[in-house]
Simulated scan of single mutants.
Amino acid sequence: MERMLVLQSDFGLSDGAVSAMYGVALSVNPDLRISNLTHDIPPYNVWEASYRLLQTVSYWPEGTVFVSVVDPGVGSKRKSLIAKLASNQFIITPDNGTLTHLIKTKGLEEVRELDEVRNRLPNSGESYTFHGRDIYAYTGARLASGVISFEESGKKIEPTTIVQLSIQDATISDTKVNGSIDILDVRFGNIWTNIHRSLFTQLGINYGDLVDVAIEDGTRQVYKHTMSFGRSFADTLIGKTVLYVNSIDHIAIGINQGSFAKAYGVGTGYNWKIKIQPIV
Rank of each mutant, 00 (worst) to 15 (best):
R3M: 09
R3A: 12
M4E: 11
L5Y: 07
V6L: 01
Q8H: 03
S19Y: 04
A20E: 10
Y22V: 06
V24H: 06
P30A: 07
R33Y: 13
H39S: 07
N45Y: 13
W47R: 15
E48A: 14
S50V: 03
L53D: 06
Q55I: 03
S58L: 10
S58R: 13
Y59I: 04
V65R: 00
F66C: 09
P72F: 03
P72T: 06
G73Y: 06
V74P: 03
G75P: 08
K77G: 13
K79E: 10
K79I: 02
L81K: 00
K84C: 11
L85S: 12
A86N: 15
N88P: 03
I92S: 02
L99A: 02
K104G: 02
T105S: 14
L108C: 09
L108I: 14
E109H: 08
R112T: 05
R112W: 05
R112P: 02
L114K: 03
D115C: 05
D115S: 07
R118C: 08
N123P: 04
G125H: 12
S127Q: 14
H131W: 12
G132T: 01
G132A: 07
Y136I: 05
A137T: 05
Y138H: 08
T139V: 11
L143S: 01
S145C: 08
S145Q: 12
G146R: 03
V147A: 12
V147I: 15
S149D: 13
S149E: 09
E151A: 09
E152C: 06
S153H: 02
S153E: 08
S153Q: 02
E158G: 11
P159R: 04
T161C: 09
V163Y: 11
Q164K: 15
S166A: 12
A170E: 02
T171I: 02
K176Q: 14
I181K: 03
V186T: 15
I191H: 04
R197L: 09
S198G: 07
S198C: 12
L199H: 01
F200M: 05
Q202C: 06
G204E: 01
G204M: 03
G208L: 11
D212P: 05
A214N: 14
I215K: 03
D217W: 04
D217R: 11
K224G: 10
S228C: 11
F229I: 08
G230E: 07
R231F: 11
D235Q: 07
G239M: 04
Y244A: 09
Y244S: 05
H250A: 09
G254A: 13
I255R: 00
N256A: 13
G258Q: 08
G258N: 04
S259C: 12
F260M: 09
K262L: 14
G265T: 00
G265C: 01
G265H: 01
V266N: 00
G269T: 00
Y270Q: 11
N271P: 05
W272S: 07
K273V: 10
K275F: 06
K275D: 11
P278M: 01
P278S: 05
I279L: 14
I279R: 15
I279F: 01
V280H: 14
